[in-house]
């Protein structure tokens, strides 16, 4: 990995994600720190990145590297953790049953990823699908269900839905800019994950295939 990518591109991308994903746009802009559960999910996500080979920590921190290079590596790792926590917090609904179910779903998905140990490409694809789905759920589906600014019919349907679900589904109304901001933050985050220093690709063949052909022939 080039020093420019490690020292400049990755930290700036990840820190930008940490900033954008924390922005809560309402009547005013507030920067919201991640929840405790988001920190847990972020830890699982970083571990999954390491186990899949999407991130090789030895290429960021190692005794053979110079102190300056190791400092760059520490910045990348800290920024990666902060960005992961903020992205997961951003994509989680704010209240009610959606908050509970999305938290559980993300936890189970990450746990499953840790156990399945997919390779780098599969993990990145899986993350893109997971984060994209969470984005659509929160900023398209739940936002539409919770938006009272439509016509009379829309307001009646929302009121009936709210009553039928005891108000446990609808969320606080979000600014239209929130969805765009979340989309760009998620896109930058996924791009940054693809740029992380990866481990050497694992062989997809079994142990027998790696042995010399003549070693299998009985003497």
């Amino acid at each position: 990995m080039s020093p420019g990518r490690e020292a400049i591109v990755l930290p700036l991308l990840l820190l930008t994600v940490a900033l954008l994903a924390g922005a809560d746009i309402g009547t005013s802009v507030a920067l919201v720190p991640p929840s405790l559960f988001s920190l847990v999910l972020a830890t699982m996500l970083v571990v999954a990145l390491v186990r899949s080979g999407a991130l090789d920590p030895l290429r960021l921190l190692h005794g053979s590297r110079s102190p300056l290079a190791n400092a760059n590596g520490v910045v990348v790792l800290v920024a990666l953790f902060a960005a992961s926590a903020q992205v997961l917090a951003m994509l989680t609904p704010r209240s009610g049953l959606p908050l509970f179910f999305v938290d559980v779903l993300l936890f189970v998905l990450l746990l499953n990823t840790l156990v399945a140990e997919p390779d780098r490409v599969r993990l990145l694809r899986s993350l893109a699908v997971t984060l994209g789905s969470a984005l659509i759920l929160k900023f398209v589906v739940l936002a539409a269900v919770s938006n009272p600014s439509g016509g009379r019919m829309s307001r009646v349907v929302i009121a009936l839905f709210d009553a039928a679900t005891f108000g446990s589904i609808t969320q606080e109304v979000q600014s239209p800019a929130s969805g765009y901001l979340a989309f760009f933050a998620t896109a930058i985050y996924l791009a940054a994950l693809a740029l992380l220093p990866a481990a050497a690709p694992r062989s997809t063949h079994g142990g027998l295939a790696r042995r010399a052909p003549d070693a299998l022939v009985p003497r």
């Binding site: 400049i8 820190l15 400092a71 760059n72």
Partner: peptide, 26 residues
């Protein structure tokens, strides 16, 4: 390489400090 790494470290720390300040002061 050292210049790139040093400049990157400085810029990153400055940026991270600014973001931290934004979170604290709102």
């Amino acid at each position: 390489d050292s210049v790139v790494r040093g400049a990157g470290l400085g810029v990153s720390l400055l940026y991270a400090t600014a973001i931290g300040w934004l979170y604290v002061s709102q």
